[in-house]
Design a protein around this nucleic acid. Structure first.
Lengths: 201, 201
DNA sequence: GTCTATATCAGGATAGAC
DNA sequence: GTCTATCCTGATATAGAC
């Protein structure tokens, strides 16, 4: 297999296993078994396990970029685009109930490990944050677009964590509905007063 | 040292380390160094590391119970009691920005480990959930008290995760304010229609 | 590029002295 | 009750054959 392809296959398997079992807990033997390669071979493609983590995060960034682009292309209104974001909770509900949010749980784990890649992982959140802020700005909320973006991102994270803890699909559906109602209720606020003070949530 | 006390000292140190470094990542050597005891001694008090985890969860349950009781005693209104819950985000903001929520991150980690104690850890959430539901019922929202409880619990989790990712204290303060406004806005809903349908959030 | 074999180390857990 | 010494396993990482 050409090096680039092998590298990609390893990264893909590591991505899934890091999500499902955690970064620290996943051994290179686990990844090796998954892709049918020997452990030793890994070090031809990556110098360290941390380097694989770096590749996984880069892969996720690319995937996120593609997803955001697809949402931009598919939905015509900012409201519908934010709806696409919210819908990932529906689409991925099974995995979320089993393993939580891939981004949130990775950030939490790297925070506890005090890992150098902690900031890189948080950068995945930033991608969503900035994209969401663009949508809220397009909705006419230029002044507090970033705060609204953080708010909806916050809710998606809360839903993911509780969904994993209680494995309650109805809860997810209920909160998704509430999130959509909330988004639809966002209209340009009058002058003066930030989001937090002018609107309950 | 009497056995009960040693056991307690070990559990206390493990509690903090499991929070700050994660359960899997924390070695018994780490805990031993923390309490100034030898690794070998641990096995006089606990048969396995998992048993220490069990003791930590039990300890957290007791601590949570004490905290809920204190909130019951200190605050006179259901609104103020829910306010006490929300305020833990303020009180613990430094640790939350560093390590996330102790309950949420433990549940997430145990989920990925497919650990037997996963349900026990989620039980910590249940304690808050049920206590919050009592408050919302007292506010006159008997019919959807549990859903409201889950909603505010969800928001606390979302805030914790993003606070850890971005280490943004202003974000926490803003969302706490929004949560309090939201709680204050909760009044008995008219007949028919569940929380999700009758109220945006 | 991929393999096998191995070095090295740290983890959980046990045995037995004190 | 606590210690030291040790076993065993599994982890990352390396060396070198093919």
């Amino acid at each position: 297999m050409p090096a680039a392809e092998t590298r990609s296959v390893i990264t893909e398997a590591a991505d899934r296993l890091f999500y499902e079992r955690g970064f620290e807990t996943t051994s290179l033997a686990d990844v090796a078994a998954e892709v049918g390669l020997s452990r030793g071979n890994f070090y031809y493609h990556f110098k360290t396990k941390d380097e694989i983590l770096g590749a996984v995060i880069a892969r996720r960034r690319a995937g996120t970029r593609d997803m955001l682009d697809a949402w931009d292309a598919a939905a015509s209104s900012p409201l519908a685009r934010v709806g696409s974001f919210i819908d990932i909770l529906t689409v991925n509900r099974s995995k979320i109930m089993a393993f939580g949010c891939p981004v949130g749980t990775l950030c939490d784990e790297l925070a506890k490990l005090d890992h150098a890649a902690r900031t890189d992982a948080a950068g995945l959140f930033t991608m969503f944050r900035e994209w969401l802020a663009v949508q809220f700005a397009a909705l006419g909320r230029e002044r507090d677009a970033d705060q609204l973006a953080l708010h909806i991102l916050m809710r998606s994270q809360g839903v993911a964590t509780l969904a994993a803890a209680f494995r309650d699909e109805a809860f997810i559906a209920r909160e998704i509905a509430a999130m959509k109602v909330w988004v639809a209720a966002q209209r340009p606020a009058g002058e003066g007063g930030s989001y937090a003070h002018s609107r309950p949530d």
